[in-house]
């Protein structure tokens, strides 16, 4: 079963499955304990190390091994966890399990350009105004028409001493938006990297008095980034390419890491994201097998009623035209061969003396003959005429 085509072979929108995009990915932590070694944490001893790799490894949850930051002694107490996802994903949720009392303030950010710029997805705090200058999130979602980074309550401490940070992309999105039809929602859920800023430990209250602080370390495990590899509806899976980069297994005449453009010869109409009801496949140009390249022309596309805008380039086999669908000057269509045949266009072969020119009728192959000359290539004198010695008037009336 091909998820990207129906039983009849017609293209249909398809998407990769929901995965934990962070699984096995390297996590860049701004602080990790064990260097230098302490009694509780030694980075050089696997039994006492707490590296950031534990956040995204597929360990069991019964007795989780946790990443742990250095002991932090004074405000600010920021620690950053960054997970490059390798390519664009469409997020569904982000979660992080804390192994000790969860922080009182956390900011969740995303990048869409592999870490060059960042935008907030959400904030979590017991005091949104003080920590992030934002009001607490309204119960019914964002007030505006589009998604927003809202400030939600900080993760609650669980009876086991830990806690769970859980964020769903729906939390910041107004109800009723549909991913297929909403470009702003598509933008909202798209991320190449996730960053979690742990900005205030649970033990630090409203005061910013560093003197009153007890040394603290953040500790967490099971960082999950639930999402789908972003392929714009044109692939059902992502694979590692020859250079080890995750990339969509593009169908529908598309290419690129996210199937975000049409393949070179598939430019008969503009690229579009597929939806659940329309595949919007890129269509190959119609060049009758006589061209390998084509370009898109928006004006022709509009004039055709948004059906076809491809223009074939470098028509071969003596063909010409937007679709290489007629013969170039000096050639005519051989009616015995299909248009796609390499020899569909035959040379006019007009006689150098009997013909008045070199260009024949493109349909019949008839060359323009001088007076008294006949034949498809003008190579004979007509009945009642005979050959003369003059190349200007090769046939004269028989006396």
């Amino acid at each position: 079963v091909d998820p990207c085509h129906d039983e009849g072979g017609a293209p249909r929108g398809c998407v990769p499955g929901l995965v934990n995009a962070a699984l096995g990915r390297e996590v860049l932590a701004s602080s990790t304990c064990g260097r230098p070694a302490t009694r509780a944490c030694d980075a050089s001893d696997p039994r006492r190390a707490h590296p950031s790799a534990l956040l995204t490894s597929a360990g069991g949850t019964a007795s989780p091994l946790c990443w742990r930051s250095d002991l932090l002694h004074r405000v600010p107490l920021n620690v950053t966890l960054t997970v490059p996802l390798g390519k664009a994903f469409e997020l569904v949720f982000v979660s992080l399990r804390f192994c000790s009392a969860p922080p009182a303030s956390v900011a969740l950010l995303k990048s869409q350009d592999h870490g060059r710029s960042w935008a907030p997805l959400g904030f979590f705090s017991s005091r949104c105004g003080l920590d992030y200058g934002r009001p607490p999130a309204p119960a019914d979602g964002p007030a505006g028409p589009g998604p927003e980074a809202l400030c939600f309550p900080a993760p609650q401490a669980q009876p086991d001493g830990g806690g769970l940070l859980a964020f769903s992309v729906q939390d910041g999105s107004p109800p009723g938006l549909d991913l297929d039809s909403s470009p702003v929602l598509q933008d909202w859920v798209t991320a190449t990297d996730i960053r979690i800023l742990l900005t205030r430990p649970a033990s630090v209250g409203d005061t910013r008095d560093s003197e009153a602080m007890v040394p603290y370390s953040y500790s967490a495990t099971e960082l999950q980034v639930g999402g789908r590899c972003k392929c714009n509806g044109h692939a059902s899976r992502c694979l590692l390419d020859t250079q080890g980069h995750l990339t969509c297994d593009c169908r529908h005449g598309t290419e690129g890491p996210d199937c975000g453009r049409c393949k070179p010869f598939y430019c008969d109409r503009p690229w579009q994201r597929a939806t659940a009801w329309e595949a919007h496949a890129c269509l190959a140009c119609s060049c009758n097998g006589h061209a390998r390249r084509c370009r898109f022309n928006m004006e022709l596309y509009r004039l055709s009623g948004r059906r076809s805008g491809g223009v074939c380039l470098n028509c071969r086999h003596n063909t010409a035209g937007r679709h290489c669908h007629y013969c170039r000057e000096g050639f005519y269509r051989d009616p015995g061969r299909p248009l796609s045949d390499r020899r569909a266009c035959r040379a006019c072969d007009c006689h150098p003396v009997g013909a008045a020119g070199k260009t024949c009728n493109q349909t019949t192959g008839q060359c323009p003959c001088k007076d008294g000359v006949t034949g498809l290539t003008c190579n004979r004198c007509a009945p009642g005429f005979q050959q003369s010695r003059s190349p200007v008037a090769p046939c004269v009336k028989t006396p």
Partner: peptide, 23 residues
């Protein structure tokens, strides 16, 4: 009636040297 094809050898190119096709 099928007429013979034009015989290039019969043409006199004396005054039309510039029109003479390359063979």
């Amino acid at each position: 009636e099928v007429m013979p094809t034009l015989d290039m050898a019969l043409f006199d190119w004396t005054d039309y040297e510039d029109l003479k096709p390359e063979v």
